[in-house]
Design a protein around this nucleic acid. Structure first.
Length: 271
DNA sequence: ATTCTTGTTGCATC
DNA sequence: AGATGCAACAAGAA
């Protein structure tokens, strides 16, 4: 589920733990979300550490604790962060629980376990955090960068290319479809076919969708307006909010993709 | 019962 | 070497 804005929303679910110390750590040792973790070292380091601040970038979160301790969270497909007190009813998928002083519990829940917990202790910033590419809404994300990447992935569908985190950090299935729908490009258009005008348009709409998502969803999981594709894409028999023509669904780039054939035609990307 | 899923990775192949 | 495509991971929902 979680893409750019949802990730930032979930990051803030743990805000009640800020400036509190970790009283106890509970990590389901068999859970896949902890693969590759030095669980003992992590638990040992975390106890008594104070949660100082948190960050979200792309689909990742980082929580910084005193002592140069960092916990990274990737929510995968079905992960979420919750906060509760000692009366909270546990779920079957509470893989990682930090009990803070005062009884607040910070919980990572993930039924499908495509998500992941990372741990790092040391000076500076964890390597896995540093290597996240510049945000789409940052100054470093330029038209030139987008154009170069589209040329590099020339023979791949634009839909699949938009899902590549190395260049479009935070974009997931619904955001990719939203971008292509707003921009009027067919999801199966080859990335290499995009002309200069189209690259610029794609770039502009990418930033627009990211900004809109942060505004509407990132804030408090608000429902996007009916004018977005978002609310129509999974409905059988759904229709395009702009043309009122039927939406079409098919697998593109290995993912279910929804588009409006009336306004997303192959060839429009050549300009 | 069957098929679907808002993600990533590792591997085979081109 | 670099690009490309796809199965695999797991479990709830429809």
């Amino acid at each position: 589920m979680p893409e750019l804005a949802e990730v930032d929303y979930f990051r803030r679910r743990w805000d009640p733990g800020l400036r509190r110390k970790v009283a106890a750590v509970s990590l389901n040792s068999k859970a896949r979300v902890g693969r590759g973790l030095d669980k003992q070292a992590m638990t040992k380091a975390l106890v008594s550490a104070k949660l100082l601040e948190s960050f979200a970038a792309a689909k990742q979160m980082a929580f910084r604790f005193s002592g140069g301790i960092w916990i990274g969270v990737h929510l995968g497909m079905s992960g979420r962060l919750e906060c509760g007190d000692t009366t909270r009813e546990p779920t079957n998928y509470d893989h990682f629980v930090l009990t803070m002083t005062g009884g607040k519990q910070l919980v990572f829940v993930d039924p499908r376990q495509f998500g992941r917990i990372l741990f790092w202790q040391g000076p500076g910033v964890p390597p896995w955090w540093e290597k996240i590419p510049p945000a789409i809404l940052s100054d470093e994300f330029t038209v030139g960068v987008v154009g170069a990447f589209l040329r590099r992935r020339a023979r791949t569908s634009i839909k699949a290319v938009l899902l590549m985190q190395e260049s479009f950090p935070g974009i997931g299935n619904w955001m990719a479809d939203e971008v292509l729908w707003r921009a009027g490009f067919h999801p199966e258009a080859k990335a290499g076919a995009f002309g200069p005008l189209s690259v610029r348009k794609l770039y502009r709409i990418l930033r627009e969708v990211c900004a809109d998502a942060m505004q509407v969803i990132g804030k408090d999981w608000g429902d996007p307006p009916a004018s977005w594709l978002f609310n129509h894409r999974w409905k059988d028999g759904g229709s395009c909010p702009r043309t009122k023509e039927p939406l079409h669904r098919a697998e593109v780039g290995g993912r279910t993709t929804c588009w409006s054939p009336a306004r997303q035609r192959l060839g429009a990307e050549r300009r």
